[in-house]
């Protein structure tokens, strides 16, 4: 899932300063699951913004709403509020939601209430940890199911560097050395040859080097096109 965390209040207040009537819009997708950008958080944030404005001697009309997902067109039909009747929308979806909504409502400023951070798993109560970088060229088959792109701070592909320190990474004593974990796991699986194999330099066009990435399911895209005709 995608994790996003709320921007600092000061930054949001500054962002909204030119506006009098604002809609805080939650998203029922990933950010609801990680308890940062769902309906509850939208309601809470709208209240906090009204209070902050009052304390600063300004008036702010802040309503809230939430839809199932801000990254899909059909769900915008379920809005109870009309964004066009507001000065601005503060979206607390991930960056995909904010941008997609901006395309759907070109006449309304859609502002980001969140910093979108990483692809995560929920590893403990209230704790989400990064597991995937979306690099576009998954290597987990030969790394014992542990991602070196994510779990190694240098995203190395040929094994541990000299910065592994008592099993920890040089960048952070709290962070385990990803390659040491891969080594231990491959050893336990009897697959150390996967560590020994020389790995070629990566093709960064599959990552971020080739511009915007798209997934096109040909059959579906074609049938939709003909249906539209």
């Amino acid at each position: 899932m995608i994790v996003a965390e709320r921007k600092p209040m000061d930054e949001i207040v500054a962002m909204l300063a030119p506006h009098r009537k604002v809609l805080v819009l939650g998203c029922g997708g990933c950010v609801t699951v990680c308890l940062t950008g769902g309906e509850k958080q939208a309601e809470l944030l709208a209240g906090q913004l009204r209070l902050a404005a009052r304390q600063a001697g300004r008036t702010l009309e802040a309503a809230f709403d939430c839809i199932t997902r801000q990254c899909e067109r059909e769900f915008f039909d379920n809005l109870t509020e009309d964004p066009r009747t507001y000065d601005a929308v503060l979206s607390i979806a991930c960056g995909a939601g904010v941008q997609y909504m901006s395309e759907l409502y070109p006449e309304v400023p859609i502002l980001p209430g969140m910093n979108t951070t990483f692809l995560a798993s929920n590893v403990a109560g209230g704790v989400w940890e990064e597991y995937c970088r979306g690099c576009g060229d998954c290597v987990l088959a030969w790394t014992g199911g542990i991602c070196p792109i994510t779990q190694c701070s240098k995203s190395l592909i040929n094994g541990t560097c000299g910065g592994t320190n008592n099993g920890k990474c040089e960048v952070n004593p709290e962070m385990e050395c990803g390659w040491l974990r891969i080594y231990e796991r491959l050893k336990a699986l009897g697959q150390l040859d996967n560590y020994r194999t020389l790995r070629a330099a990566r093709d960064h066009r599959k990552d971020r080097g080739g511009g915007v990435r798209r997934l096109v399911l040909k059959d579906m895209a074609e049938s939709q096109e003909s249906g539209n005709e």
Binding site: G162, N166, W179, L180, Y183
Partner: peptide
């Protein structure tokens, strides 16, 4: 790093 606490992964990397 010859004196790493777990030296085997260092040796494999050196072989590579």
């Amino acid at each position: 790093t010859p004196c790493a606490e777990v030296v085997d992964p260092q040796i494999i990397k050196l072989e590579k």
